[in-house]
Design a protein around this nucleic acid. Structure first.
Lengths: 144, 144
DNA sequence: CGGCCATCATTTGTGCACAAGTGACGTTTT
DNA sequence: AAAACGTCACTTGTGCACAAATGATGGCCG
């Protein structure tokens, strides 16, 4: 019965998992409300990583850099490519791979987004004091 | 060019958004590895909330309690129902609504899962000291 | 060399998450 | 009572996230 469960004293909204999900939800709401060009969080991350990577990058490798699996990466890359923000060409030395690179358009969009991303991070952390903000980031790094 | 972006000094893996997502990912990996009965995180949360709610609950209301929108709730409820963990019946006083309730089977499964959920939370927070764990939960509450 | 195994990109299937729209029903307001 | 507005459940469409499988290719080892 319900009293059995109640006696277990488990508070859903005190669990890290529940709070991580809700915090992430709030962040993504802020992000999609401010992001120019209609990019999603992962489209931005992927584009940014590709733009700042010095050498050539394959699709799977790029996905791994932003913690996406191969199947998810495929979709994100396809959407970025459809918007002419990135380009792919066959790797000459490995017939399995495609080498990805950003387009001029992609880099221009990225430059405009970067200041906004700072603003989005600020807004997400706004309920916390500067010290708390640093603490949160430090602790999240440890459990991610 | 890349140097333009580099000079902007934006570190992706220091951003709250990126870290929230990765922390959530790790937590969900732990969860799906330990969860009995193959329930997902949201299936558990929904079932738990329904089981511990004293009065009758409609579908949309239940979804809101665990921060899901109506469209998402529909799917989660359908899967719980298909497994005979919850039941729905038409609300006599409001023809738009269905009143949800847990089945005996649902409550039994839940009772077995609760200790595991505690273990999952523990595992997720394992990299942190007890004080840090409390701090993280406190800060996450503020930004969720 | 030839077999073995890892990796690459891709596909299929399932499950959240949210936006936008629909028709049925309730409530409130005039 | 009629109109206006809100809510309920549901649908469609898009986008991540991951498991599992596939065929092509590359590296390694005996």
């Amino acid at each position: 019965m319900a009293s059995d469960l109640a006696s277990q004293d488990y508070r859903l909204d005190e669990q890290v998992g529940f709070l991580l999900r809700k915090a992430n939800q709030r962040h993504l709401t802020i992000l999609s409300g401010m992001m120019p060009g209609g990019l999603t969080s992962m489209q931005f991350s992927t584009l940014y990583r590709l733009a700042t990577e010095p050498g050539p990058v394959s699709q799977n490798a790029l996905g791994r850099m932003v913690a996406m699996d191969a199947a998810t990466t495929k979709g994100v890359v396809a959407r970025l490519q459809a918007r002419n923000l990135i380009r792919t060409e066959p790797d000459p030395t490995d017939k399995r791979r495609y080498t990805l690179s950003t387009t001029e358009e992609g880099r221009a969009l990225l430059a405009g987004i970067l200041p906004v991303m700072r603003e989005i991070t600020r807004e997400t952390l706004a309920p916390l004091s500067p010290t708390e903000q640093e603490t949160l980031v430090r602790l999240l790094k440890k459990i991610s």
